[in-house]
């Protein structure tokens, strides 16, 4: 067993033995249960007051896209919580508690340690987000018969967003104490979210300034750009009045990411990783 797998499995074992995964599983089942109930009722009620033929709007698409958009928002939030709590004290927090020193004096080296913690947390958060996303897609399809225009890529982008937040939290853990890092990453998540919402509002009211602010935020915090792109893709092929109705909803008007931004996301992940390794390598423990 290599040092990377040893450290990654050790971190996962800790989460398992500390019942982190059990709590996450129970709360996720509760969330999915509530989502199933809400989705079923929403489709029932919406079909009760309108129909496709009368308005030219496919109400199943509007309800399905809005609810799946809500689910994606909630899923990324849950993934963010998981990412932060799995990584917020990896370096400084664990060093202050005396947990880190016995491990990093071993021959594995600090970059390997950091890589292993990233792979462990990133794999858990990425897989969790993709699994919850697919579960919500299945619920929406079961309750209303609607499926997103693109199924796989929005889930992968959502998972990648959670992985990016893991990396940011690991970087923060080199500099900040546990509580400060948790707060900082939640605030970054909030800032990214606000940037994305400004873009949606800017799109709706045709404001170049808001769009520019959103664009800059997307480059600075690309996890939200991934979420926005995923959100856009679930109704990518929807057109006409139905498209218009979707855009009027709280999860409509999401910004599509161009190829440069997606490439930048990969570069960003690499830069965050390099910064974390460089800072950790120079840090006195």
């Amino acid at each position: 067993m290599t040092a990377v797998t040893t450290i990654a499995l050790h971190a996962l074992q800790e989460a398992l033995r500390r019942r982190v995964f059990l709590v996450v599983l129970v709360l996720t089942v509760a969330f999915l249960g509530l989502f199933w109930l809400g989705t079923s009722k929403a489709f029932e009620d919406a079909r009760g007051f309108t129909g496709t033929t009368e308005t030219g709007v496919d109400i199943d698409v509007v309800v399905g896209a809005t609810l799946l958009g809500l689910a994606m928002f909630a899923t990324l939030f849950l993934g963010t919580v998981l990412a932060i709590f799995l990584t917020l004290g990896v370096v400084r927090g664990d060093a202050e508690r005396g947990l880190l020193q016995p491990i990093v004096v071993r021959p594995l080296g600090r970059p390997i340690f950091l890589l292993a913690r990233f792979l462990g947390a990133g794999a858990v958060c990425g897989l969790y987000v993709v699994a919850v996303y697919l579960a919500t897609v299945w619920i929406v399809r079961g309750a209303g018969g609607w499926s997103p225009d693109q199924l796989i890529r929005p889930g992968l982008e959502l998972g990648a967003a959670a992985i990016l937040l893991c990396a940011l939290s690991l970087l923060g853990s080199v500099f900040l104490s546990t509580t400060a890092n948790g707060i900082a990453i939640f605030m970054l998540y909030g800032a990214g979210l606000v940037g994305g919402l400004l873009g949606q509002i800017g799109d709706a009211i045709n404001s170049a300034t808001l769009m520019r602010v959103s664009d800059r935020t997307a480059w600075a915090l690309p996890f939200d750009a991934l979420y926005q792109d995923g959100l856009h893709r679930i109704t990518a092929d929807t057109i006409g009045l139905t498209r218009f109705a979707v855009n009027l909803g709280p999860f409509g008007g999401a910004q599509q990411a161009d190829a440069d931004l997606l490439l930048w996301t990969l570069v960003y992940l690499g830069l965050v990783g390099l910064a974390a390794v460089a800072a950790f390598s120079r840090r006195d423990l």
Partner: peptide, 12 residues
């Protein structure tokens, strides 16, 4: 081999 002055092992 190193034993730190202030160290802790995971309680679990």
């Amino acid at each position: 081999g190193y034993l730190a002055e202030l160290f802790r092992f995971p309680g679990w």
